[in-house]
Design a protein around this nucleic acid. Structure first.
Lengths: 212, 212
DNA sequence: TGTACATCAGTGAACGCGCGTTCACTGATGTAC
DNA sequence: TGTACATCAGTGAACGCGCGTTCACTGATGTAC
């Protein structure tokens, strides 16, 4: 916990706001290192950026506010990762496949981040203090997925009306696959790429072109 | 928390073992009432069966031991629920469909139990002190699912070799669907029965017979 | 150019809480004589 | 049949821990005159 003895220099007078970024970065690093959303405590975050716990409260009024800010930032990271994974895709179905693979990879490689993004229970939407009509910060991620499914269906001449249901099916699979992978690493799982491809095939979301 | 003032009579001399069953029952009830695996604390369990915390330790050497016992019991309940759901099935595919519907229903109606069964993270297999070669108590549940998938495939003249992969796909969907339902209740989800049926159809696990 | 001062970026100590767990104990109850 | 005693099923108080959060403070730094 004192693994990072970054002899920290106190920020100059007008520059207190820098700590805010440091806090969010340290929180993200904490999730990455521990792989566990429960490790995300005010005290651990403070220690991770070489500051005492009360310093946090100059930038976030309470833990919930910090977690919400972190959530926003991490969802943006997550969406970017999926978007960048599209690069070089041949067609709409290839886009979708790349996104799905990237989704599973992200979850497997960043279980802490993924967990705080999608597994949040007591940190969940309602208890996160998100207002009634307000959108969940992760809603945009699902909208992206749905749009990609729809584009893939349309490109194959299939009805776009089924996109909603198929997107739910696909999301449930992706989420369950990541979650089971992380919570049950002792099982011998089939390769993720081929499993994702198999599901896309079953859902009618793979192109006929055989190129891998 | 003192909602149940069951003026408890201390067990007679040879009958101390009765408390063990009361503890497990109270723990299960606690999961049912709270719907949250985090509510499962030694102190809450003790209070729920009108006993002081140290009394727990006459029957379980520590919390991990209690959770393991509860896990065994709850997995048995879960398997029974799925088995009983088979009653009246017309064929192997109908068996599978009934099991899948029951799976999702169980998860949605008993989020606390489901969570302790399948979401356990820090309570997870490795940290639960399950020995290296030892089977996870939930492994039998997956074996059941796989067998049901295989029977369904065979009944349709499809190769049984694909059962393993298809069972993984199906499990990931079922688990993800339950987990997303529980953690994101504010989303407007499509009806569970038709969604489960749609997935079974996509995976080639539905009979052609149109009867619902 | 020099100095008094307001402000800013944090610190250090403490709070109350619930947790798992321990320890010495108590009072009822069955049993041996 | 009556009594002493060992045992059993718990109790009550306390421990150390990490948590989120609060409060009064301190020392460096930019600014006004």
């Amino acid at each position: 916990v004192s693994r990072e003895t970054v002899l920290r220099h106190r920020n100059r007078k007008g520059e207190g706001a820098r700590l805010r970024q440091d806090i969010l970065a340290a929180a993200a690093q904490l999730l990455a290192d521990s792989g566990d959303a429960d490790a995300l405590t005010i005290r651990a975050v403070a220690a991770a950026c070489s500051v005492t716990p009360p310093a946090i409260y100059q930038h976030f009024s309470d833990k919930q506010t910090l977690v919400r800010a972190l959530l926003q930032q991490q969802f943006s990271v997550f969406r970017n990762v999926l978007h960048e994974a599209e690069a070089g895709a041949r067609d709409a179905c290839d886009v979708l496949r790349r996104r799905c693979r990237a989704y599973v990879c992200f979850g497997a490689e960043h279980p802490g981040q993924y967990s705080v993004l999608f597994n949040a229970r007591e940190l969940g939407p309602s208890s996160l203090g998100i207002a009634e009509g307000e959108a969940h910060p992760g809603a945009a991620a699902f909208v992206d997925l749905r749009a990609s499914v729809e584009a893939c269906l349309v490109s194959q001449g299939k009805p776009r009306e089924s996109a909603g249901l198929v997107a739910i099916e696909l999301w449930a699979f992706l989420h369950g696959f990541v979650d089971l992978h992380v919570t049950k690493p002792e099982m011998n799982w089939p390769p993720t790429e081929s499993t994702v491809d198999a599901v896309l095939g079953h859902l009618g979301l793979m192109n006929a072109s055989p190129a891998n």
